[in-house]
């Protein structure tokens, strides 16, 4: 059985500690909801599992399928069955979706996929996600709307058939109809492949469609609270305040960002003010 095991994970970005000891286990065929207020480390956790170079693991372990994935480069983690549907998918001008996907499918096969089978599979998936037919020939995510980019992540998930998918706010930017289509495609793949899921979303509507069995609440770099689907529902209706109260936490105030000013204007004003003796 392929399980993801995270033990005492500490992660830094640019010298700032974001995750401060996360423990999480995800077994095959399980769906986990990862919740928590913005800026508390949800995306960081997913990026660290996938291996984003900016996120530095300073302590702890991540194992998948019995292997220490912290020692594996990003592409090996992907080939081991991990998939991250990103919150902000990159645009790759010059590379068509079909060339990209064919290359990505071929690296996990012994023999390259025959062109005809690839086209058939790609067309079927495009239809399933209700995307425009020219998707295959367009450059990866270039000029895509927010919703199209998110759906294209799911097209990739369908074709690469991961054993564990992490969806980072895949539902933001999708309208109600698109949300149903995406959820339907995810559920179908779960039934077909037994894929497990870690889902980051702020919206109960998406959780209603995917039905997570476990909910984890990440606050200030630690999983503060764990429960079943009921917990996700409660957070959706009541927010996070009751958690803060119950655990005696004062949410960290985000630093006020300085208001951008034009240096030119300021310098001029300062000089003038000095000159008139203010």
């Amino acid at each position: 059985m392929k399980s993801l095991m995270i033990k005492d994970l500490h992660v830094e970005i640019e010298g700032r500690e974001i995750l401060k000891g996360v423990n999480l286990t995800v077994n095959e065929n399980e769906v986990h909801a990862l919740m928590g207020p913005n800026g508390n480390g949800k995306s960081t956790l997913l990026a660290a599992i996938m291996g984003h170079p900016k996120y530095v693991v300073t302590q702890g372990e991540i194992e998948y399928d019995g292997k220490n994935i912290l020692e594996m480069p990003v592409e090996e983690r992907s080939k081991a069955g991990l998939f991250l549907a990103m919150q902000y998918p990159q645009e790759i001008p010059g590379v068509t979706n079909s060339d990209f996907l064919r290359a990505a499918m071929n690296v996990r096969r012994e023999r390259p996929i025959p062109l005809f089978s690839f086209i058939r599979e790609m067309e079927r998936t495009i239809k399933e996600l209700d995307m425009k037919e020219d998707l295959a020939h367009r450059f990866v995510n270039e000029g895509f709307s927010g919703g199209e980019k998110k759906r294209n992540e799911i097209v990739q998930m369908k074709l690469l058939k991961p054993s564990l998918s992490m969806l980072d706010e895949i539902d933001s930017g999708l309208d109600v109809d698109a949300l149903k289509i995406v959820a339907g495609a995810i559920n179908k793949q779960r039934q077909e492949t037994g894929m497990s899921l870690i889902i980051v979303s702020h919206y109960e509507r998406f959780y209603e469609l995917i039905e997570p069995e476990f909910t984890h609440v990440l606050v200030d770099g630690k999983i503060l609270l764990e429960g079943d689907a009921e917990l996700a529902r409660k957070i959706d209706t009541e927010g996070y305040d009751w958690i803060y109260k119950e655990y005696g936490i004062t949410p960290e105030r985000k630093e006020e960002k300085p208001v951008p000013v034009s240096i030119g204007t300021c310098a001029v004003r300062e000089t003038v003010e000095k000159a008139v003796g203010k």
Binding site: D99, F100, A104
Partner: peptide, 20 residues
């Protein structure tokens, strides 16, 4: 990173971009 997260190595990514 995006290409690598889909299983392509650095060299494969370079080849893909060059092909494009």
């Amino acid at each position: 990173y995006y290409l690598q997260s889909r299983g392509l190595s650095m060299r494969q990514s370079i080849m893909l971009m060059s092909t494009g």
